[in-house]
């Protein structure tokens, strides 16, 4: 019977898709499982409050790396989020259809595909080579460059969801376009814009490669945002993971757990706190 054969093929293919989905999720659980198992046993108060111990010695923590990551994220956000939102405003409110906006949109998409290590090289040559200092500023700029296209895209999607009728209502009241955009359109899309921005922050907070050439890394506290290298969780994890010391390996797992926790929190807050709250 043709029908039994067709049914068999149908079941087989649907079965394969389900199995593939299961297979895809195995590494996620394997990875999270190891990070939690190895990370928790190495986490203690010292980890959050102390500087790294001297090479190969036990004890110490990643206080400077945790603070460094937060500082880098802050610098990147201060630069990247406003620029991203402004570009998105241009693309939705001023110029949706011209060749320029199409070019900008396309460039934005392509920019998201440029390897982050390339961004690291370019920012390093532009800032580190000129100022002669690895710095938090250089690291923050490189993360901002990665953030900008992500923020543009998510903000644009959100602004497009604001009904045109809302803008017309504003025009009809004799409100200037600037105030319509800043006081009416942006607040209407605010939750979505914040969600997108937080996801972009989450995305860059695990970036390592561009920081290697810009923020470098630091076993101590950083005193200047423009003149001193600064530690960050991802770079510290990398350094420790590739070192020969067991103690550092344990700290790398603990660092990974903290880093994933930060990223996961940002993701969850972005998704649930800002998406579903209603008036």
């Amino acid at each position: 019977m043709i029908n039994t054969r067709r049914n068999f093929v149908n079941k087989l293919m649907l079965g394969l898709f389900s199995v593939a989905t299961f297979v895809a999720l195995v590494p996620l659980f394997a990875l999270l499982g190891y990070v939690i198992k190895n990370g928790i046993t190495s986490l203690n108060l010292d980890f959050f409050t102390k500087l790294p111990a001297v090479m190969g010695m036990s004890g110490g923590g990643m206080a400077n790396a945790i603070a460094g990551t937060l500082i880098l994220i802050a610098i990147a956000s201060i630069i990247g989020i406003p620029i991203g939102i402004l570009v998105a405003i241009y693309l939705t409110e001023y110029d949706r259809y011209s060749w320029l906006s199409t070019t900008v949109r396309f460039t934005t998409d392509v920019l998201t595909g440029i390897p982050s290590i390339i961004i690291g090289i370019v920012v390093s040559m532009a800032i580190v080579a000129k100022t002669k200092h690895f710095s938090a500023f250089a690291g923050g700029v490189s993360l901002a460059v990665i953030m900008i296209p992500l923020v543009i895209r998510s903000t644009e999607e959100m602004l497009k969801l604001v009904p045109h009728a809302i803008r017309e209502a504003g025009y009809a009241l004799g409100i200037s376009q600037r105030r319509i955009i800043l006081n009416i359109v942006l607040p209407t899309a605010a939750k979505g814009i914040i969600t997108g921005a937080m996801l972009a922050v989450a995305r860059v907070s695990g970036e390592t490669a561009p920081l290697l050439f810009t923020a470098l890394g630091n076993q101590y506290w950083t005193h200047s945002l423009f003149k001193d290298p600064i530690a960050s969780l991802p770079v510290q994890i990398y350094t420790y993971a590739t070192s020969p010391y067991d103690e550092w390996h344990r700290q790398a797992w603990a660092g990974s757990l903290v880093l994933i926790a930060i990223i996961l929190c940002l993701n969850l807050i972005a998704r649930f706190a800002f998406r579903s709250r209603s008036n």
Binding site: A169, G174, I175, T188
Partner: peptide, 20 residues
Amino acid sequence: VSLRKTVGMVFQKPNPFPSM
């Protein structure tokens, strides 16, 4: 923009500002 303060308009579908 000034003109529209003298000539008001009400639209087909109610369009209050959702964020306000």
